[in-house]
Design a protein around this nucleic acid. Structure first.
Length: 366
DNA sequence: ATGTTC
């Protein structure tokens, strides 16, 4: 039994269902602290946009099946003034197919077992995963931006993907009969889960790396990684274990917080002073406002596919799956400006820059 | 979320 802290200027905005889900996990025996972040929303049983800390136990299903899912942000070598939407769209082909490179070598190089290679390595996957090309809209902190050596005259690229089937297999193998019981932290079961969890985490990083490389190669450009963070994980923290379920780390340097595909994304710097009240974590995005089912039901009635292929900010969307394009519509997500304001209000972040979407790539395969 | 699915 533990208390819940909510990070929001106006906590009454939270969906009651997400709060019920958060309460249910706060009631787990052995749970010590639970935090709901500004992007909190109801998940498949477990609230997303939340952090859980326990002195004594580990709950694999609080991390979920997409272990290591996260965001990487790249400053490409492509000058912004040369960016042509039509040309770029035309060049992005074959990216849903398995990667033709050597997956085993890529994993070995990262210190991971080569037998974890699979055809999914180097592919985005489905759901809310994407690759997005962006431009710097506003630099909020010029001094910090310059000190980091960042450039506003380049095309930027954001990758959101995870560990695909691997993370799911790991959760499957360690699924608890009674979910709320979890695993005692020093048990052989915990050791076994954590080893596989760490491998899935590493796999997801390699996956994002290969995805970025493939997208750059198809455009004939290069890029440098500004950051790579994962928002589904469990890690040792203050003598216990910190579970992040759709929560970005606030203790690993720069963080990007993406809005929906029709909204801005942010490059932010975590502020250490107040970090503990949010369990050293930040929102991982805007958070859903509508479930996938609701989004499809409401939007497919009012809009056609062509409406969905453009956003209010003028960006284009490549998504040839006609269900997914509605499920992931900007309308289904909360206002990212509100999420950022909540984090600023709590003294958790300083905004460095705001990025405008140019082109969001989901899938060409229907 | 998913080498997914009757």
């Amino acid at each position: 039994m533990s208390s819940i802290s909510l990070i929001a200027n106006d906590p009454s905005r939270f969906d009651p269902l997400s709060l019920d889900q958060l309460q249910a996990t706060a009631d787990y025996e052995g749970m010590d602290r639970v935090v709901g972040l500004p992007d909190l929303h109801a998940g498949n049983g477990i609230a997303v946009g939340a952090v859980f800390w326990s002195r004594s136990r580990i709950w694999p299903h609080l991390v979920g099946s997409d272990i290591g899912c996260g965001m990487s942000l790249w400053e490409t070598t492509s000058p912004l003034r040369k960016f042509r939407l039509g040309t770029v769209e035309r060049k992005l082909q074959g990216l849903d197919a398995p990667w033709s490179g050597n997956g085993q070598a890529a994993l070995t190089e990262a210190g991971l077992p080569p037998e974890l290679a699979s055809p999914a390595l180097g592919t985005i996957g489905g759901g809310n995963h994407f690759v997005e090309f962006q431009r710097i809209e506003v630099v909020a902190d010029e001094a910090r931006f310059a000190a980091l050596g960042l450039r506003h005259d380049r095309v930027w690229m954001m990758v959101h993907s995870g560990s695909r089937g691997l993370g799911q297999a790991v959760l499957q193998a360690h699924r608890q009969l009674e979910i709320s019981r979890g695993i005692p932290k020093k048990s052989p079961e915990a050791t076994a889960y954590l080893a596989q969890h760490d491998a899935a985490l590493g796999w997801a990083v390699v996956n994002r790396q290969i995805i970025a490389k493939r997208f750059c190669e198809s455009l004939g450009i290069d890029g440098r990684k500004v950051l790579d963070i994962c928002h589904n994980s469990v890690s040792p923290h203050q003598g216990g274990w910190l579970h992040r379920k759709g929560a970005a780390p606030a203790d690993q340097g720069l963080v990007t917080i993406p809005g929906s595909r029709g909204d801005f994304s942010y490059l932010v710097e975590p502020i250490a002073d107040n970090a503990d009240k949010a369990l050293h974590s930040l929102a991982h995005g805007a958070g859903r406002k509508w479930s996938r089912k609701d989004a499809h039901a409401r939007l497919s009635r009012r809009f056609n596919i062509a409406d969905m292929q453009r956003t209010a900010l003028g960006s284009h969307v490549i998504c040839e799956d006609r269900r997914l394009i509605f499920e992931e519509a900007p309308h289904a997500y909360k206002d990212i400006g509100m999420v950022i304001a909540d984090l600023e209000g709590a003294g958790l972040i300083r905004v460095i820059a705001k990025l405008r979407p140019l082109l969001s790539y989901k899938t060409r395969a229907a």
